[in-house]
């Protein structure tokens, strides 16, 4: 056995320097370590965020990996801990443990068309990969972002999507499940967009994140288009309590999603994907 380690379950205090209300139920916290210094991470990784007295939740990092001076998390209020985090204000402190998990293999995609498929709040864990791709834009063929949301009011990072769409070297397709007549964009599921988007299937890397059902159908469509499954990557969600492969909760077949994931190469988990209640 090795020498006695530090306490891996003890969070570090980070102060909130900015709060952005993104959507009715979604907000972004910008954090800085109380102790000073930087926070290095890779796109796709997550942290365990602790709200004093309420508990801890796994939240993916939604900021730019090139900017380690601040830590950015985009959070959807769905339970008591995320609601407690949502009640915090600039100057308040949260506990942070991490970063944990596997990254999006953005460098691996150099030379390929990069296809990013996001659904709902699943755009948040992909945003660091988008920043990374934009910073290395000349190293890719096409850069295509396909994003599905519930309604036009639920489009996350709308201003940024509009900014990216205005670039000549990025294709952004946004589609919503339902809309009223005021919406000038697409209606329909994101798989419809995948079916038609112009990319070279044999030289494409796809990064997919969203609800599990959406990912199943999106990957299906990407596969139908002819993209090899070892170039398709998905980010899985399971109940993560420790981030260390220790509490057992996030197991998915032989994998600890917190440690062996959340980003998986699809060819390596293709057999697990359709198994129900695994």
């Amino acid at each position: 056995m090795t020498a006695l380690p530090a306490e891996p379950m003890l969070p570090s205090p980070f102060r909130i320097v900015k709060v952005v209300r993104e959507l009715a139920d979604t907000f972004t916290l910008v954090l800085q370590p109380e102790a000073g210094g930087a926070f290095a991470f890779r796109s796709g990784q997550f942290n365990m965020l602790y709200a004093f007295g309420a508990g801890e939740v796994p939240i993916s990092i939604s900021g730019d990996p090139a900017d380690d001076g601040q830590l950015v998390h985009t959070i959807r209020s769905v339970g008591p801990v995320t609601q407690a985090l949502g009640a915090l204000k600039v100057g308040d402190v949260v506990g942070v443990r991490g970063p944990f998990g596997t990254p999006w293999p953005v460098e691996e995609a150099f030379g390929d068309d990069l296809v990013i498929i996001a659904g709902g709040v699943g755009l948040a864990p992909l945003r660091p990969a988008i920043y990374q791709a934009l910073a290395n834009r000349q190293k890719f063929g096409k850069l295509i972002i396909m994003y599905g949301a519930r309604t036009p009011q639920d489009i996350l990072f709308r201003k940024e999507l509009e900014k990216w769409r205005s670039r000549f070297d990025v294709n952004v397709h946004v589609t919503v499940d339902r809309a009223t007549g005021q919406w000038a964009g697409r209606v329909g599921v994101v798989t419809n967009v995948v079916a038609r988007a112009g990319f070279d299937p044999l030289h494409t890397t796809a990064l997919v994140c969203g609800p599990e059902v959406m990912m199943r159908y999106a990957v299906d469509m990407v596969e139908k288009r002819g993209v090899p499954t070892d170039k398709v990557h998905v980010s899985m969600e399971r109940n993560m309590k420790c981030g260390l492969g220790l509490c057992g909760h996030c197991q998915w077949g032989p994998h600890f999603v917190c440690r062996d994931g959340p980003v998986f190469r699809f060819s390596e988990i293709a057999e697990l994907f359709p198994v129900r209640e695994l």
């Binding site: 599905g148 519930r150 798989t191 059902v213 959406m214």
Partner: peptide, 18 residues
């Protein structure tokens, strides 16, 4: 067939509240 499948996915309300 494709549009029927897509419509059913829309019905699932993938991104809706739990």
């Amino acid at each position: 067939g494709h549009r029927l499948a897509a419509t059913r996915l829309q019905l699932v309300d993938l991104y809706g509240p739990a």
